[in-house]
Design a protein around this nucleic acid. Structure first.
Lengths: 190, 190
DNA sequence: TAAAAAAGTTGCGCTAAAGCAAGGTTTTGC
DNA sequence: GCAAAACCTTGCTTTAGCGCAACTTTTTTA
């Protein structure tokens, strides 16, 4: 099993090394180029992805063609459209790599089988859902209750590295503001 | 065990009636008045609440004193500040009844004990987190990608009864718009 | 490594929604 | 059951942020 995923399990569960090695074959390593799509709107999501290196983003495109980014999965994190994975319905969101990335893919059937039958994976899944829950609640309050400058400052506080790593276009779509506004805010801030 | 909670379990798990009755004592019935607070900002949340009748809302108050509502728990639903319940940190949100309500309260220690040791509760919890996840993802895309009229129409589609049941003030705070704007939209819509 | 494409910046006008004020209406609590 | 408080509505003014346009800078790719 890839050491980063092993670390992820070890930090969150009491699983043994032997059992971990039995789980390893479920996770298929894949290398992807920058800007490659793992899922498009309308497709049913088939995999859960663990990011070994690089970065994925989840976003949707609204009626006016504007992209809205919901989540970034950096190295050492799981990321997928759980909405589609859980419901088995067509996805309303896209998954795309923002950098050349290495990911571990586990098929949804294998994943949910392990959730039911392997306590460590049950725990991991619960942990993912809990983290996602907390992150998104905070995000809703942020989107609802703050103006664009407050949102940017909040991002700088929470995840300062993001601003150097990702394009302004993508960050604007995460903050729910236009690239113009973000550009003006950046000028204002320094 | 209260029939509504029993129904909730039966619809989501294969738990036996005998085992259900063993779980019943964990859930303490409580009657609360309208506008009563179950949790305030800064307090650590100690209970998970199942709504038998009435309605709870979860909201925060931002720096300008504006209320932002994140979630309504109507009869037959669980509702609590999982953020605080999970992290055991002080809550950033309030829980308040919007109607005279009857609720079943389970203490967080009992709840998480059962999550670990009672498969049915593990399943229920997973189910709550999954539903919350899906609801909030949709909500983020809605808050990010739509103007105020689109947001109102989305609410009317998804939960048409809400508009008659709850005050405009509270609905506005859920939609992330001012009460003035909601009032104008309502005039426009008919 | 040079041309093309994409991304970022900034002035300017425009618009959706906020906020104030003053009115009417409903709800609450004694 | 009535006074007080809270809530809702609507005209008017203000404002944050959008989007175009024109330009510069960075990135991509052949």
């Amino acid at each position: 099993m890839h050491p980063l995923l092993k670390k992820y399990f070890k930090e969150r569960t009491q699983i043994t090394d032997e059992r971990l090695e039995e789980l390893a074959p479920y996770f298929i390593e894949k290398k992807i180029r920058k800007n490659e799509f793992l899922l498009r709107e309308g497709e049913v999501c088939k995999f859960n992805y663990f990011v070994v290196s690089g970065c994925l983003r989840l976003f949707s495109v609204n009626a006016e063609g504007i992209e809205n980014t919901r989540y970034f999965a950096f190295e050492g994190k799981f990321g997928t459209s759980f909405m589609s994975l859980i419901t088995k319905e067509p996805s309303i969101e896209y998954i795309q790599s923002l950098e050349k990335s290495t990911i571990l893919c586990i098929h949804h059937e294998d994943f949910f089988h392990l959730v039911e039958h392997e306590p460590a994976v049950n725990k991991i899944y619960r942990n993912i859902l809990e983290s996602a829950y907390i992150t998104t609640q905070k995000r809703i309050y942020n989107l609802q209750g703050s103006d664009s400058l407050e949102r940017l400052n909040w991002l700088l506080e929470q995840q300062p590295k993001i601003l150097n790593r990702l394009s302004s276009k993508v960050i604007a779509s995460y903050l729910g503001i236009s690239p113009y506004t973000l550009s003006r805010l950046k000028a204002k801030i320094q």
